[in-house]
Computed example of a mutant assay.
Amino acid sequence: MAKETKRERFVRIAVARTNRIIDNMRLLGNCSSKSNYEYTDEDVKKIFNALEKELKQTKNRFLGVDSKEERFTLE
């Protein structure tokens, strides 16, 4: 059995993690149903600001720029 290369391991893990993130974003989109949930425009703004900030930080890590991690909350 051949040992998995770093490239093969990256592709396998990156594909799985990216698809998991996409699936979770779709689940988050389900929260947009006004018939099932109540939220404010401010809530939506906070959610998307947090997502955009994390996406930018993650991209920067691939570019070699470090940043601190923060947890999201609506409270």
Rank of each mutant, 00 (worst) to 15 (best):
G29S: 00
I13W: 11
F72I: 02
I21Y: 06
C31I: 11
M1P: 12
A14D: 03
L74W: 07
K46Q: 15
R9C: 07
E8C: 00
L28A: 06
E4G: 12
E38Q: 14
N36V: 11
N49M: 07
D43M: 14
A16I: 08
R26D: 15
T73Y: 03
L28M: 07
E38N: 14
R71E: 09
C31V: 12
Q57T: 05
I22Q: 12
L27I: 15
S33W: 12
E8T: 01
S35T: 06
R17H: 00
E70P: 05
L28K: 01
K6I: 07
C31L: 14
E75W: 13
A16C: 07
K59T: 12
Y39F: 12
E38I: 10
Y37W: 10
D43I: 15
N24S: 07
V65R: 11
L51T: 04
T73I: 11
T73P: 04
N36R: 13
S35K: 04
T5Y: 01
F72A: 03
I21A: 09
K53L: 10
K59E: 10
I22M: 09
S67Q: 08
A16N: 09
I13D: 13
E75Y: 14
D66E: 08
S32Q: 13
K6M: 07
R26G: 15
K59N: 11
N24R: 09
T73A: 10
V44K: 09
E54N: 02
L27K: 15
R20Q: 10
E69Y: 15
F72Y: 05
R17T: 06
E4V: 14
G29R: 00
E42M: 07
N24C: 06
L27W: 15
T73H: 08
S35D: 01
I21F: 07
N30P: 03
F72P: 01
M1T: 08
N30E: 05
N60W: 06
N60T: 01
N24W: 05
N60C: 03
K6C: 05
R12L: 05
S67D: 02
S33M: 08
D43P: 13
E70Q: 02
